[in-house]
Every structure is written in structure tokens, then in C-alpha cells.
Design a protein around this nucleic acid. Structure first.
Lengths: 204, 204
DNA sequence: CCAAAAGTGTTAGTAGTACACCCATGA
DNA sequence: TCATGGGTGTACTACTAACACTTTTGG
């Protein structure tokens, strides 16, 4: 605190990185080694360095975490509770980031969103706010980031359903995607499946 | 800067307070007295105090600025450019806030959004981001904050048109508002107008 | 009686919803 | 031939868009 009562603070970014794997929404978490909250899980955030914007800091973090810096990301809220970090005041800029499972090397640190219990600090609240943001902003340009280049329409439908927590009618869903030119059919079929192979589509 | 390169920063809030007066979108601005940017206009922001969340700080500011603290407000983005304040690092949490013109005592410090030129710091950018946020999030629960308790439907249409920068067909607009139960007719007429008086409505 | 803004209905097109069976493939 | 998921059409409803004239009031 400076002498006139104006606060100075550390600045953190907390990325909530989502992916979909085996029909489940997953989030990247760390296990804390040190106090406070030792052994609890936390979002893989970090502090802003000198001369760095929040977005630059996030990109640095994404590269470190998943080896890539050109993922989708979006600021969704800044958390400013004075005691959210018991050590010293730290405000945290929350980001939602999305990654396609095919780009992930190891799945160890990814946890089912629905099974996540307590997290360190206020990270449970940050996580829920991010989930809510994601749910309210589902559209084809968001969903795109979860999909591989080529995919069957039914996989696309599944991703929409997981993100929005609702069901679509299969016939209506296909009609909508095709007629609104969101996707286009490629001349390829799914391989190595023990049922009728699906036609593959891509985003236009 | 702390010794390991981790940045500490002052934390500001910058409220972009909108109202509509005489069919124009207006914003509350201050004229700076001191350097840097002396005599230029700026958003009426301020620094977070010790033990204060961004939202508490904003409410304190709103009370000071317009005498009320229960206005609509929403965080829309946090600005973190390292040199956005030439004196020392300050990040700013941007808020959109809305007020009905009837609650404003003096209109001196309110400026037409469309006529605002350069502002101090990065406030022009903050202002444009806020305007954009507002435009993309127009709905009846936002528009409500611009309206008095009772209003003619045509005034409501005008507010939608200003916020969204588009026109509505008068007949279709009225049908939609009434049939979707957003508003209800009261048994009162406009007073003291030199033309056919309009029926007054309120939000349900 | 004029100026000013309020108020009113119909039609056509588009988008969304509900619904049940056959198809192609591998095992 | 069976199990598995892929793939298809029609009818109804709801919403959106286009469009022009009459009404009520004060001055």
C-alpha cells in the first residue's frame, strides 16, 4: 500500500484451457507443490513480467504449457478480491483458451470438468466463471478450435452438445450446418470404424 | 519491478458511463488539470484503494460522480499495456455503466459520443471498446437502464436504434415489444406535447 | 386546417422444431 | 446376421421483414 491508501498489486493471468477428449470437457490443472494450498490443484497461471501485457504473458504461458502460442484465447473477467491470495495482494486476469485434443501431447494433467472439486485460491470460482463464459458464447468460430481439420458431422454435434449442455436433433443439426455453409463435405470417409463410415466435413 | 522480474502495478478502474440525452449517446468525461495530458479529456477513473475490489471501487466512484451507486455496470476488458500510463505501470479494469438521463443533475460533463476526439492516455481505445461492448449486448435488460419508469414505445424504439446503430420498422417493433411481454401498457398518456399524445408503457 | 408524431394489419419468406426408419460397414 | 453408429424428408409453427395510410392533439 502506498501512503495515500492507493493499492499496488501483483498481476497474474489465469488461463482456463479447455479441450474435449472422449466426449468429456477437460481442463488443464497443476498440482501445487508449495504452500499455501500445497498439494491442491490450481489453474496453471503465472505473474506478469516487466514490460509484458496480459496477452503476451498468456502466450508465454501457453507455449510453456502446451507448446503452442497461437491458440484461441479471450479475457473474460478480472478477479480483484483483496485477499484472494493470502500472501500478498494479487489480481488475476482470467482467460479462456481452447485447444483441439490432437495437439495435446500428454493427457495426464487434464481433468474432467465435472469431476473437479476444490481448487487452490479462488480458482474454483474462476473455473466456473470461465465455463459459464464458454457456454454462453458457443458458435461455429469457437467450436472450430475443438475440432480436427476433418470430422464427421456427428462429432461436431457432440461438441456443440457438450459445450451448451443441451441436445440437438440430428436431422435438424445436419441441415442447419450444411445449409448455413458453416461446413462443407469432403470426398473422404472415416477409416477403421466397425460400423458404417461417416463422410468427413471441414469448416469453410 | 520486483527482483525476479515480476511486475507490480497500480490498479485503476475506468468507468465508461453512458446515457442518452436528446437522441444522442453521451459519455461522462473529466478535463485533466495536471500533467501528463493536462487539459485533455479523460475517463473519470481512479485507483483501487487498499482492501477494495474493483466493483467496490467503481461503486465509490459512481457515487462521487453521479451521486448513486446502484447503477448498472459490467466489466468488459482489462487494459495492461506496460506504458499506458507514462508515470508508472497501471493496469485498468474497464467498466461499462448506464444511467437514465432523468437521474443526472448537471449535463456539463457529458459529451456526445460521436464528437469525442483525442482523450488522455489510452482512453479513446477504452471508450471504443466499451461502445462496442454496449452495441453487441443490447437487449431489454440493458435498454431498461436508459429509460424512465414510463415511456412511449417510440422512445424505446429510438433508444434501441441509437444503441444498435440500426433502424427498426415501427409496426414490427411495437408488435415485438408487446407480444413478447417485454413492456405493458399503462392507462396514461403523455402530457404537454403539441401533437397526438402517446400511450405510456413500462417494463414488466 | 395545418403540423407533428402516434398508431395500426396483412402478406410472404425464413428459420426452427418435431418426429421414425433404413443404410453401410466390420465382426 | 447382428451390432453399431450414419444418414435421410416432411409438415407445422414461430419469427422476421416489407409495406402506407389514418388518427389525435395543440397551435
Amino acid at each position: 500500500m502506498t501512503e495515500n491508501g492507493q493499492e499496488i498489486s501483483k498481476i497474474a493471468i489465469d488461463p482456463v484451457i479447455f479441450t474435449i477428449h472422449l466426449s468429456k470437457l477437460k481442463v488443464l490443472l497443476h498440482v501445487r507443490e508449495k504452500e499455501p494450498f500445497a498439494d491442491m490443484k490450481e489453474l496453471p497461471g503465472g505473474l506478469l513480467l516487466h514490460n509484458e501485457t496480459a496477452e503476451e504473458s498468456l502466450k508465454r504461458k501457453l507455449k510453456e504449457l502446451v507448446g503452442q502460442e497461437n491458440l484461441f484465447f479471450k479475457q473474460f473477467y478480472t478477479f480483484t478480491e483483496p485477499n484472494r491470495d493470502p500472501r500478498e495482494r494479487t489480481i488475476s486476469i482470467g482467460f479462456v483458451s481452447l485447444i483441439n485434443e490432437a495437439k495435446i501431447k500428454e493427457l495426464v494433467r487434464w481433468f474432467d470438468y465435472d469431476s473437479i472439486k476444490d481448487l487452490a485460491f479462488d480458482h474454483k470460482k474462476i473455473l466456473q466463471t470461465a465455463r459459464n463464459y464458454l457456454k454462453e458464447n458457443v458458435n461455429s468460430s469457437i467450436v472450430k478450435y475443438f475440432m480436427p481439420k476433418l470430422f464427421p458431422l456427428n462429432k461436431l454435434q457432440e461438441v456443440y452438445e457438450i459445450l451448451e449442455e443441451r441436445k440437438y436433433d440430428n436431422r435438424n443439426f445436419r441441415k442447419k450446418m450444411i445449409s448455413s455453409s458453416i461446413v462443407e463435405e469432403m470426398n473422404q470417409l472415416e477409416q477403421n470404424v466397425s460400423h458404417r463410415p461417416a463422410k468427413l466435413f471441414r469448416f469453410k
